[in-house]
Design a binder for these strands. Structure first.
Lengths: 341, 341
DNA sequence: AAAGTCTATGCAAAGGTTTGCATAGTCACG
DNA sequence: CGTGACTATGCAAACCTTTGCATAGACTTT
């Protein structure tokens, strides 16, 4: 019989009224008589009418979709953030499109182009570790698309930002290590160029300095990527030093766990011979042996807040809101991989 | 000056030609003179023309988007599958919309309705653990939307399926435990109603039976949900039994890790007093102590294949392809949480 | 030179919905 | 009865692109 889905025109024809009347009836426009409304609604129901959002999108020049760009989702951190974002967005009229940059600037560029083509309404982004230039985000903003940056800062980009006080977290962790009597504290840093890497390094340095612990540049090694291999290699570099460190503050739990793995294989006692503290508090970090001391971040809340900020921009398209910069405080979680204070 | 983005009409006006000519020039239609094409392309470039996909969507009655429905992404399993899916889809013209059902049938229903409203072109789905009725998927199929089910089977639903031979994996794991001399092998099953739960249970049962090990119903406990608490509670039930099991085959690594945690707290030696085998081979499972024996699944490949199957349907809309059922073989990975053979 | 062929382009419709403006009809008031 | 106000509805444009058909002009063939 009828091919394709039921449209407003079908209802109009059936009821011998104009499509515009049907549209208004469906949207409860006050100028429509109650009887007409009822008739239209009844028929729409009967015919299982589904509004064609594609048409609406074209008309409104918006896709009712927001894009989320993250480097990866196989770790816990971004998965949890996304879950937070999702839980907020689900209760709005927006759809959500998750895109993975695989820590690649190129792919991030491609994604942004794509999102811009489909007329995305807003973007939430944690930039890739390769990204140094933020012009692609600026281009989005210029075409009226609000951009909210989370977790990893984009220095120089004016946008809403939801970050963690990485500096504070690192400072606390390192100061704790000093407090337990560690003298030779090393740092396994993250990929260079990441704001989080820099902040955590700075926290490490300042904690040492404040406590008058001399800084040894041999004790600072940056892990180039996020693979187990990278971490193992970097750890070995540290543990094979003439004067072996007695504590390692790692950029994140993943690295910390690899570090512990290597240390154990070398027969070192954790934490007696070497303390380890990570960052992120991944769920399994409390289950490894010894359980990992780490810095907890309110990941889920960060996701929710980022989404809420974006939504508030979308709701107030006309009003120009000031850019917000929200910084969450992380918390040091002491477990068994570090000595007692 | 000009508000909004550049359209094909703007280019046409500028060049004093018809919009249709511009369209054809941009799409390399053979009937357009080279000079015209060049002129159009040059101007399009200069004006930074971005085709409006929204208009195209309306015209083609499709959104060029495929939906992916998963229960959650905080674990490694679905994250890795999604990464595989993404890596395939990225190289097609399709966009990808990831939706989380949070293991809830209700939310899954809402998601399906939503996807159907936005005229999704195809769906990849791992149903929630609550889902027993698959009519919502059938409705999608009826409106011409191909559905590919992955990981968790939907019995009775005719669709493409990409699964793992859970039965085989479980059978192997349990037979291995028997081979190492374990006599009282318990099973911590997953949420009832999941095809994977059933298959793994059946593999467990058959392995016992084949090896003439009596089945003890006290040794089979199902974990209702995926939280740590649920797993701890279920484990305790097993370990407090009069005749304590000397091996536990768990539904997945997450549960297995919780189990080991409880066992260790009770002072049990793993694997001497109790062996543990999980399922999934999560990346951190090799880092816990003792490292976890488990069943590995080719997650990334599953994601890729699922996506490829869906794409092949979309490319051959007219042709009706037979439903495919692909079953991947898992592999037993023996580490330190089980005895040697 | 007429008829036919080919090339390059234009016209207009289609896709489904919303919305400003126009209009037909009703009613009330002077 | 004429005017004004109000109600309920219809018309048509707009959103942007693609595409079947039409056509104008140039060139070829008989």
């Amino acid at each position: 019989m009828k091919k394709g889905r039921v449209t407003i025109k079908d209802i109009a024809r059936e009821l011998k009224i104009a499509p515009s009347t049907v549209s208004r009836a469906l949207n409860d426009h006050p100028a429509i008589k109650k009887e007409t409304k009822d008739a239209v609604k009844a028929l729409a129901e009967a015919l299982d009418y589904q509004p064609n959002l594609l048409a609406l999108n074209l008309l409104q020049k918006k896709s009712n979709t927001i894009g989320v760009i993250v480097p990866e989702i196989t770790g816990h951190f971004f998965s949890a953030i996304i879950t937070g974002i999702q839980d907020v967005i689900v209760n709005s009229e927006y759809n959500i499109m998750i895109c993975l940059s695989n820590e690649s600037y190129e792919e991030e560029l491609t994604i942004v182009k794509r999102l811009s083509k489909i007329q995305i309404d807003g973007v939430l982004v944690a930039p890739s570790s390769e990204t140094k230039n933020f012009d692609h985000f600026r281009r989005l903003q210029k075409s009226g698309i609000p951009v909210v940056v989370f977790d990893r800062d984009c220095p120089g980009l004016e946008a809403d930002k939801v970050l963690v006080d990485d500096y504070f977290g690192a400072f606390q962790a390192v100061e704790y290590l000093i407090g337990t009597g560690c003298k030779n504290i090393a740092h396994l840093g993250g990929p260079l160029n990441l704001s989080t890497t820099e902040q955590r390094l700075q926290g490490y340095l300042d904690a040492l300095e404040k406590n008058k612990v001399p800084i040894n540049s041999d004790y600072i090694v940056h892990v180039p990527g996020f693979s187990h291999k990278d971490a193992v290699k970097a750890t070995k570099k540290l543990l094979e030093l003439q004067e072996r460190p007695d504590a390692i503050f790692a950029y994140n739990d993943k690295i910390a766990i690899s570090t512990m793995h290597v240390a154990k294989k070398m027969g070192l006692q954790i934490p007696d011979e070497i303390s380890v503290i990570g960052f992120d508090d991944e769920p399994h970090s409390s289950f490894i042996t010894p359980s990992l001391s780490t810095v907890w971040q309110p990941v889920y809340s960060m996701g929710m807040l980022s989404a809420r900020i974006l939504l508030s921009h979308l709701k107030n398209q006309n009003v120009i809101l000031d850019f917000r910069k929200e910084v969450f405080k992380p918390e040091l979680v002491i477990r068994a991989s570090s000595k007692e204070n």
